[in-house]
Each structure stands twice: as C-alpha cells, then as structure tokens.
C-alpha cells in the first residue's frame, strides 16, 4: 500500500470572494514508503498548498488524501494521527521558535505527543544529534543562535516527533552553499537511519538531482513525474515552464545547440565530464 495517496485534490482559496484562487486542481499523486521525492515548480505553482494537505492543515475543496489507505480527514483523531506521522517543516522554520531554551523548543512536538519524559529526552538528544546541534546549546535561548543553528533547531523540532514522512519546504533557502550541502547530507542520513520517506520542496536543481523521484508542478498540476534522469531529459518542456536546468544540463544543452553531439539526459557534472572526455577519445572519466 502506498504511504500517501492523493486523489482528485482541488484547493480553492477564499472561495466565493473576488479573491478566489484555485491553487491546486484535480491532482493525483502517490508516494511510496522509503522514497526520497523532490517537488519543484515556479513560485505560486501550488507546492506549499499541496504539502499543507499532507498533514491536514488545509482542508481540500474536493478530493481525498489517504495515509496508509486511511482518509486523514475522517475524524479529529485521524487528523491528529496525520499531524504526528507526517512531519512538515515550513519555509523559514526558524520563525516558529518560541521556548526559553533550545531543548524545550525541540521538545515541544514530542510533548504534544504526550510521551513520557525519558522518551522526550531521548528524542530531543537524538534529533539534535541528527542535525548537528551540540548539547552545549541546549540551555541557550533559541533566539541567540546563529541563523543556520536556528534553522537546525527548528528542523530538529520536527525530527523529534519521528515522523514516517518528512516534508520540508525549501529547507535550504537562505543558507550558504556549505551549510546547504551539510544540512542536506544530514537529512539524507536521517532518512537512511530511520528508513523514513522524504519529500523536499526545492528550487535548487542540484538538490532535486539527488532524489530518487522528481515531481514538477505548474499551475496547480503535476506536469512531470519520474526519475531525475527522465525529467531532466525533457529539457524543452522544463524550460517552457520557466524552470532552471541543473548547471551541467544547461551546459550540455548549449553545447548541443552549437552542434556538439552529446548523449541525451546529462544532468550531473560527472556525466557531463564523462561525455566531454569521451568526445576527446579518452573516456577515463577523471575530470
């Protein structure tokens, strides 16, 4: 059974007013357990609206969302279940920090789960460990942390709930490249360790590249769905939606336009290097 199954999901904001706006229209999607999925799309394409339905924060105008085959809106208990089994980290999560200490803030979710104190302690320490927050920071006020540390503390707050599906909306926005890389690696390591599922909303093609499955949204619909290889080989369509290609794919595209014959579906630097070296007749891949 699929972990998440969305059928005919439509969401209309401010229905019945002059500001009515259809953000998602008749969308179907299934997510299997254990996948890492990237969701890309232009600003306003409906990504945030879609993920707010995964843990029942928004009510669909039409359609259903099934978690392990159960309707997440069926009852109050089902909604609560979904909130805990699907962890959502929104954009700029550092603005949600409020407790007096970092420890207490990370413990907020597990506490709402009504777990016993030793279990809360264990989870907080483990979650902080996953995102690389040292124990020496536990007693500090979250507002005194650096920007990157705040982000980690906020993400740890959701990890501590030990969700089966972790959804992150632009988790690396506003971080420097090193911080971005580091955070991403930690998230992937967390997924490995817990054999959980990750859905990443991102603008960054190099991040999308590293997921097993890539969803492309445009105008409230999922317009492409496949492996990064499959999606990035449909360059023209991606460009027409107004999305960036990964740097390597862009270079390959420009080279092809200038008559260099490269194999299709190049989207990592490694592949590009290999292809170019192969053209030079020494395909050892050491670039």
């Amino acid at each position: 059974m699929s972990l998440i199954e969305i059928r005919g999901l439509t969401h209309v904001y401010s229905q019945g007013t002059p500001f009515e706006k259809t953000a998602i229209e008749d969308l179907d999607l299934t997510i299997e357990s254990g996948q890492t999925v990237a969701l890309i799309g232009h600003t306003g394409s409906g990504k945030s609206t879609l993920i707010s339905h995964l843990n029942a924060l928004l009510k669909p105008t039409a359609g259903t969302v099934l978690l392990d085959g159960e309707d997440i809106y069926a009852s109050k208990a089902a909604i609560r279940q979904a909130r805990f089994r699907v962890g959502v980290v929104f954009q700029y999560p550092e603005y949600q920090l409020f407790e007096q200490t970092v420890f207490a803030d990370i413990a907020y979710g597990p506490k709402n789960l009504k777990l016993p104190q030793p279990e809360i302690d264990r989870r907080v320490r483990q979650a902080a460990g996953f995102v690389g927050l040292g124990e020496e920071l536990f007693a500090q006020s979250p507002l005194e942390l650096s920007g990157g540390q705040k982000r980690r503390a906020a993400i740890a707050g959701v990890l501590a709930m030990e969700p089966e599906l972790l959804v992150l909306d632009e988790p690396t926005a506003g971080l420097d490249p090193a911080g971005r890389e580091d955070l991403l690696e930690k998230l992937f390591a967390w997924r490995q360790a817990r054999s959980a599922t990750i859905l990443l909303v991102t603008h960054d093609m190099s991040i999308a590249n590293r997921c097993q499955r890539l969803l492309v949204m445009a105008d409230g619909h999922i317009v492409m769905d496949g492996t990064p290889q499959q999606v990035f080989s449909r360059e023209e369509q991606l460009v027409s939606i107004g999305l960036d290609l990964p740097a390597a794919a862009r270079i390959a595209r420009l080279l092809r336009q200038r008559g260099v014959s490269l194999p299709p579906a190049i989207y990592t630097t490694q592949q590009l290097g290999d292809a170019i070296l192969a053209l030079w007749g020494k395909g050892d891949g050491a670039c």
Partner: peptide, 15 residues
C-alpha cells in the same frame, strides 16, 4: 504571519 506560525505549530501537534 499568524497563519504561517499557526500552521507551523499545528504541524508540531499544537492543539
């Protein structure tokens, strides 16, 4: 902002 923070805390199980 209230909407956003409310969503974030609800996502952490706030009731």
């Amino acid at each position: 902002e209230t909407d956003r923070i409310m969503s974030a805390q609800k996502a952490r199980g706030a009731d």
